[in-house]
């Protein structure tokens, strides 16, 4: 793959710095995070900011270090939510990394390995959020960051179907969903749910106002649950839609859905096994999406076995079906 060469900046760094090996810790360079700039001797130092979240005390300290080490006094927010200090002289690498370590800030990575996960705000404070994406990003960063893979391996977490974290273009993406459950006893037939549903999955019965639910149209966003004034719509369960094989870059690919309603506690296992499969089947420089195309999605699913297979499928329409309606839901 041509883009392997372009994007794998680690190799370039190592080559460039061979003459001054005594000044630079090559182990730091290998895990990446040091990206060569156009300017002679100057590099971008990318920090590790899973989910793009950072406490303010650390941010203040990083600001001081950026002021000290950036020859131009600038930082950049990377496309994957990590803060980068620009214009750092390679001779200052060890000093900067040392100072970053003191404030508990690690340097990120480039190259063929599990990358820093990205995430939206998630259910902690975003009203649309269905899953705790920040907690998941932290977990992935702790457990899987830096694991070697045939090519880069990007993960992300979106808390709802709006999918701000773009799970559809990740090597492995997780998007929060909720399965709605309707109970007639609490329903007053107010029709707000049918108005609130942006997917036309809920139609209000013309006589009673009660919902006729089409499960095939439902994307599990939970708008009906949040809008219902009487708690007639409730959350049956939360989970993740799991998507694999997406990428952006020069030849973008859309991922495919491999699981619906994967619970939080099964996410680590899903990643662990997927990385295992990728390392066993992917060629060097081949993204997992291309490996899946070559080897076959069914082989991957077979390998994943019970991790995905044990997750119960979404129940079909259980909402109100009026006696005389011709449009029977789901």
């Amino acid at each position: 793959m041509t883009d392997h060469f372009i994007e794998d900046k680690t190799t370039k760094v190592a080559v460039k710095l061979e003459g001054v090996a005594e000044k630079v810790d090559f182990n730091d360079l290998k895990t990446g995070g040091f990206i060569k700039q156009r300017q002679k001797d100057l590099f971008t130092v990318r920090m590790r900011c899973p989910g793009g979240r950072m406490d303010t005390k650390r941010l203040v300290e990083i600001a001081k270090l950026a002021e000290k080490y950036s020859k131009k006094g600038v930082v950049h927010f990377s496309f994957r939510q990590s803060l980068e200090i620009l214009y750092v002289d390679y001779k200052d690498f060890n000093a900067l990394v040392g100072e970053l370590e003191k404030i508990g800030q690690k340097v990120a990575s480039c190259g063929p390995r599990v990358r820093v996960p990205t995430a939206c705000g998630g259910c902690e404070y975003n009203p649309n959020g269905l899953t705790d994406t920040q907690k998941m990003a932290e977990m992935v960063d702790k457990k899987f960051f830096g694991m070697p893979t045939p090519h880069k391996f990007k993960t992300s977490f979106s808390g709802c179907p709006i999918d701000c974290a773009r799970t559809k273009e990740m090597d492995f993406g997780f998007q929060g969903i909720v399965e709605p459950l309707w109970e007639e006893t609490n329903c007053t037939g107010c029709t707000i749910c049918s108005e609130a549903c942006k997917e036309d999955a809920i139609e209000a019965d013309a006589d009673t106002g009660k919902p006729i639910f089409d499960s095939k149209k439902c994307i599990y966003c939970g708008d009906c649950i949040r809008a219902c004034p009487t708690e007639a719509w409730r959350a049956k369960r939360y989970g993740h839609i799991v998507r694999i094989g997406g990428k952006h870059g020069r030849h973008p690919m859309e991922s495919v859905e491999v699981c619906r309603f994967l619970p939080d506690e099964k996410v680590p296992e899903a990643i662990k096994k997927t990385v295992e499969w990728y390392n066993a089947n992917g060629k060097r420089g081949e993204r997992i999406g291309n490996a899946l195309k070559r080897v076959g999605l069914e082989k991957y699913l077979e390998f994943m076995g019970p991790v995905f297979a044990d997750v119960a499928p979404a129940a079909t329409a259980r909402a109100y079906v009026p006696n005389f309606s011709v449009k029977q839901g789901g």
Partner: peptide, 11 residues
């Protein structure tokens, strides 16, 4: 308005 306001009122 009816899609959004009731949700916010509940929240």
């Amino acid at each position: 308005p009816i899609q959004n306001v009731p949700k916010s009122i509940k929240e």
